[in-house]
């Protein structure tokens, strides 16, 4: 019954792009290939557990159901949405051009495979019936839970037949259920569907922003907002840096959002030096600039996903890079 009701409801998928627009040099062409989407065709409902309390003057029934989002609850095709969002984000914050056709070997190919795309949520229905000799009453209530999205995408960047990099993006997102004062069951179910679609929208946004940031990183070894200042890349090509031996040595626990481990200690550092460390979150090298030296630790400014961040780490745990 819940399934037949949810199948009739759908919501529009979309989000606001809040990454900064860049006007960096776009010397590279990327052709996107997006492989199949494992999103279910229809939204499905399965029972998780139930509770029955059949007492003399009081009866209580409760059922918790697991709802898995399917394409039927999304107004637009998810595949099309993913592709268009990727193209839009590339145009905004990407330092490369999106190619419509694979014409020659100079074009990079980004092969994306959506391995997992699952959005689930719990829906609870409860009915209470109570009666005395001449009086009786009942209460029926329904409620939703936060939508949990797991999106896993494998990206392979190739130039010609050679693989430049391969990476798995795993996004786990929890979208809080909006507690509205509206008690109408139809509105509640509609909001429940919208909540799941909203969760998928934000997960896709997060994933796409990471993909574009990594593409920038692989082409220039930096992210666009750094380039925006003088319209040209400031840090050398990572291919040159990759020739040096790199050993990850130590996780940094004092960073809230970005778990980092850094690379071999080397030169004496000073403010303004360009350095590099490794991020577990983006699973890639991150370039930054030394802002301040504080004894054994240094303050590094770096840009991730279009945002300027600062991290304080041991000066022995970063690798100096050559200035461009």
């Amino acid at each position: 019954m819940l399934q037949s009701s949810l199948i009739k409801l759908n919501s529009s998928i979309g989000y606001l792009h809040d990454s900064p627009k860049t006007n960096c040099q776009r010397n590279n062409q990327v052709y996107f290939i997006i492989n199949h989407n494992p999103l279910d065709s229809i939204t499905t409902v399965s029972k998780i557990n139930g509770l029955v309390l059949p007492l003399i003057i009081f009866n209580h029934f409760e059922t918790t159901m697991k709802v898995k989002l399917g394409q039927s609850s999304i107004q637009e095709s998810y595949n099309t949405f993913f592709a268009s969002s990727l193209a839009d984000e590339s145009k905004r914050s990407g330092c490369f051009n999106v190619s419509n056709a694979l014409s020659n070997d100079s074009i990079h190919t980004l092969e994306l495979t959506i391995d997992t795309c699952s959005t689930t949520s719990k829906y609870r229905k409860s009915t209470t019936f109570y009666f005395l000799v001449f009086a009786y009453g009942w209460n029926i209530s329904e409620s939703g839970s936060p939508a949990e999205t797991r999106l896993q995408v494998t990206a392979k960047l190739k130039k010609g037949n050679s693989l430049v990099y391969e990476k798995k993006y795993v996004i786990n997102h929890s979208q809080p259920f909006v507690n509205s004062s509206i008690v109408n069951t139809n509105k509640l179910r509609s909001d429940f569907t919208t909540n799941m679609v909203e969760g998928l929208s934000f997960s896709t946004k997060e994933c796409i922003e990471q993909i574009v940031a990594d593409l920038n990183l692989s082409f220039y070894g930096s992210v666009p907002s750094v380039m925006q200042e003088n319209n040209e890349p400031r840090i050398q090509n990572p291919a040159e840096i990759a020739q040096d031996s790199v050993k990850a040595v130590q996780p940094l626990l004092n960073e809230q959002n970005t778990s980092l481990k850094v690379e071999s200690k080397k030169d004496q550092l000073k403010a303004g030096d360009q350095v590099m460390f490794f991020s577990f979150t983006t699973n890639s090298n991150i370039k930054g600039v030394v802002k301040e030296i504080k004894g054994e630790t240094i303050l590094i400014e770096y840009v991730t996903f279009g945002k300027l961040k600062t991290i304080e780490i041991s000066k022995y745990d970063v690798r100096k890079t050559r200035p461009s």
Binding site: S11, S12, Y15, L16, D18, K21, T194, E198
Partner: peptide, 28 residues
């Protein structure tokens, strides 16, 4: 709303407010 926040990209308050507006739009 996207055009508006892009036109005033430096205005972070506007960006946050518009994100809320979008939630209302989404849930109608």
């Amino acid at each position: 709303y996207q055009d508006l926040i892009d036109t005033h990209s430096d205005n972070l308050v506007l960006k946050r407010i518009v994100s809320l507006r979008l939630r209302f739009l989404r849930y109608n």
